[in-house]
Amino acid sequence: MATASELLNATRNDPGQNSLITIEAADNVAELSPWADDWAALTDDEKARYLVMATEDILDQDNFPSLNLDTDQMYNLAASCTVYQAIFLSINLDEINDAMTASITGATSLSGPVESKSMTGFSVRRAVSPYVRRKLGMYCDSTISIVRSR
């Protein structure tokens, strides 16, 4: 059976494309980020899985309804944002899953020792990195907001 990294397809416009960026290119982008060590600690299979999930998030029309990847500039921006989203997912997956569980069971807030997070109808598809939201913000659904209370 093929591994996740072997199944990663970042060939632009290929019908089987499941990532906007290769692992090698993602490594180069991540190397310049504050989370370089977190990314480097992942195996290639973990990176591939997160890149596929992140690509789905970036291409999700609910998150970025007016994102158009027809130009190289926009495609490259989305590809680099895919890396930041993959890192965000790798670091925050447990919290995202907790938020999903709370939403499913009807809880309206999650409290931790440091802060409280309030959410209603949370969707994992809406769990987008603040960095990615900032970079692709003009393509966002502006009705979505994340509020942190102290």
Rank of each mutant, 00 (worst) to 15 (best):
E31N: 09
A36T: 12
E56W: 07
W39R: 01
E31Q: 10
S33C: 15
N28L: 00
D37E: 10
I58Y: 11
N28F: 00
D57S: 11
D44G: 11
M53N: 06
D37A: 07
D37S: 13
L51E: 01
P34R: 04
L51K: 06
T55N: 05
D45F: 14
E31M: 09
A48T: 08
V29E: 10
I58P: 00
L42H: 10
T43S: 13
R49M: 15
K47S: 03
D57A: 13
A54I: 15
P34T: 07
R49F: 05
W35L: 01
E56V: 11
W39N: 00
W35R: 02
A36R: 07
W35H: 03
D38Q: 13
S33R: 04
V29S: 05
V29H: 01
T55W: 03
T55P: 12
I58A: 02
D45G: 09
A40S: 12
M53R: 15
I58E: 03
Y50L: 14
D45L: 14
Y50Q: 12
V52Q: 08
P34S: 11
A48L: 09
D57C: 06
L32I: 15
D37T: 03
D44F: 07
P34Q: 06
A30C: 09
D37P: 02
A40L: 15
A30M: 03
D45K: 04
D44A: 04
R49T: 09
W35N: 03
T43A: 14
D57M: 06
